[in-house]
Amino acid sequence: NLQISNLDSFTFKTYIDDEKEYREHLNVFKKVIELSKRLDLTYTRIFTFWYEGELDHYLDKLIERLSEAIDIAKTEGIIIVIENEYSCLVGNGRDLKTLLDKVDTRWVKVLWDPGNAFVARETPFPNGYGLIKDHVTHMHVKDVKVINGGFKWMPIGKGSINYRNQLSAVKNKPIVISLETHYRNDKNDPEESTRESFLGMKKILNEIEDSF
C-alpha cells in the first residue's frame, strides 16, 4: 500500500552556462513531467545549477534558465518544487525567498531542506523556514553539525538543527516529509545508520504528538 509522493529529478544540477547540458536537462525534465502525469502526481523537484558565486550575480540568468521549465510545468499542470541545495546557486531559505519573489508564480514551490540550509550558512529554523514557510510542499529531513571545522551528517536529533520545533511547525500541514540517508555510523553501514536516524526522527515526532 505504499504510495509515490513525487519524482525527484536531478534537473539543473549542471553549470548554468553549459548550453548543451541545459538542453539535455530540459529533456530530462520533460520526461519526468510525462511520468508524473502518468502516475497522477502533482509536483516534481528541480535544482538551480551548480554554485559558482553569490546568487545576486546569477539571479537574472537563473530566472531566464528556469523560465522554459516553468512554462512547460504550467502547460502540463505540474508544480515545480525547488530544493535548496548548498552546492547550487540557491542554497538556503534566504536564497529561496529571493527566487520566489522574482518568479512570482503559483507553479513554483519549495522543497525545504534544513540540513542543506545549515551547510549553506543559515540557521534553518526559525530563520530560513520562516522566510518560505507558506510555499513548502515537501521537506527533506537530515541532521548535521560542525565537527573539527567540517560539516558532518548526524542521526536525526543529534545534530545542530532544531527538528523538534521544525517538525512541530509543519504538523498538520499538507507537506511530504522524507528522511534522507546521508548519515553513516562508525561502521559505515547504510542500513544501520538509516535505522538509527529514523528512530531519532520517530522519537521527536512522538514527543511532538504527546505535547499537543
Rank of each mutant, 00 (worst) to 15 (best):
I147E: 13
G130S: 04
K152I: 13
A117R: 03
F151Y: 15
R121E: 05
K142G: 05
K152R: 15
W153D: 12
N148G: 14
P126A: 07
P114F: 04
V144T: 11
V136I: 09
V136T: 02
Y129H: 04
V141S: 07
F118S: 01
T137C: 10
R121L: 06
E122F: 01
K102T: 08
V141G: 05
D134N: 11
L111N: 05
G150S: 14
G130T: 00
K109A: 09
K152M: 14
W153Y: 15
L111Q: 03
M139G: 04
H138N: 13
K142F: 11
T105A: 11
V110G: 04
N127Q: 13
I132T: 08
M154P: 08
K109Q: 12
K109F: 06
K133Q: 04
D101K: 14
W107D: 05
F125N: 00
A120G: 02
I147K: 15
D101E: 14
K152E: 15
V141P: 05
G130V: 01
T105H: 08
M139T: 11
K133L: 01
N116C: 04
I132Y: 02
D113E: 04
P155L: 15
V103T: 07
A117Q: 02
P124F: 03
G150Q: 14
H140I: 06
A120E: 00
D113G: 00
K133I: 03
A120D: 00
W107I: 10
I156D: 08
K109D: 04
Y129M: 07
D134I: 11
K152S: 12
V110Q: 07
K133A: 06
V136C: 07
L111G: 00
H135Y: 09
G150H: 11
N148M: 15
A117Y: 03
Y129G: 00
D143G: 10
I147F: 12
P155H: 13
V110L: 09
Y129W: 07
K102C: 04
G149L: 15
I156Q: 08
G130I: 01
E122T: 01
A120I: 05
D101C: 14
W107L: 11
F151A: 15
F151R: 15
F118P: 01
Y129C: 02
P155V: 15
I156N: 10
I156V: 15
V108Q: 04
I156K: 14
P114Q: 07
A120F: 02
D113I: 05
G150A: 14
N116K: 12
